[in-house]
């Protein structure tokens, strides 16, 4: 292992003549300034909130419940997402579905977005692909704490950012 950190002494050689390094440094910063002025759109910053960053597919944003063709949730209230959730932020109340082929459905489905850690485990755990995090929504702002609890209707109404719901 011969790789040694090179020691540059500040008071010897060209380093002791401070101005030379200032000129070199200015060359770098001026180059950056000119590049940025010539292509202002290439700079990394965005004018948030006027411009919003579009998140790539697969980004874990705000949750949504996937509806059936009739608009009711695909969810069968199996409690897998509520069990796997490390933050315990999902609250489901199950009820009997009128259609005997479906068995159960969530009467209530609440996600406390203030508790959620956005790990995506609920999506991974769902056996019927009923919950997804593909809304692309990454900013939440409300006036009351209680407004951060997303209810079933709200979650059903949320759309996917990338594709229309099935």
């Amino acid at each position: 292992m011969s790789l040694k950190v090179e020691r540059v002494q500040g008071d010897r050689g060209v380093e002791s003549f401070y101005l030379w390094n200032v000129v070199q440094g200015l060359a770098v910063t001026v180059r950056h300034a000119v590049t940025n002025l010539r292509a202002p759109r290439a700079v990394q910053t965005t004018n948030y909130p006027e411009e919003k960053k579009v998140m790539p597919p697969g980004y874990r944003g705000k949750h949504r419940l996937v509806p059936r063709p009739d608009g009711s949730p695909k969810c069968t209230a199996c409690m897998m997402c509520a069990t796997v959730c490390p933050a315990r932020c999902i609250n489901i109340e199950a009820g009997e579905h009128p259609d005997p082929t479906i068995e159960k459905f969530p009467v209530q489905f609440d996600i406390d977005l203030l508790k959620c850690v956005f790990c995506g485990y609920c999506v991974e755990a769902c056996p019927v692909d009923a919950i997804r995090m593909d809304s692309g929504v990454y900013t939440f702002a409300e006036f009351n704490r209680s407004d951060f609890v997303a209810h079933k209707e709200q979650l059903l109404a949320t759309l996917s950012q990338w594709a229309e719901p099935r």
Binding site: G10, D11, Y18, N21, Q24, H32
Partner: peptide, 18 residues
């Protein structure tokens, strides 16, 4: 590389760290 050019021979920084 840009950063190295700015700092690695900069006497102020070297004196602050050595």
């Amino acid at each position: 590389a840009d950063v190295e050019q700015l700092i690695s021979h900069n006497r102020i920084l070297l004196d602050r760290l050595t």
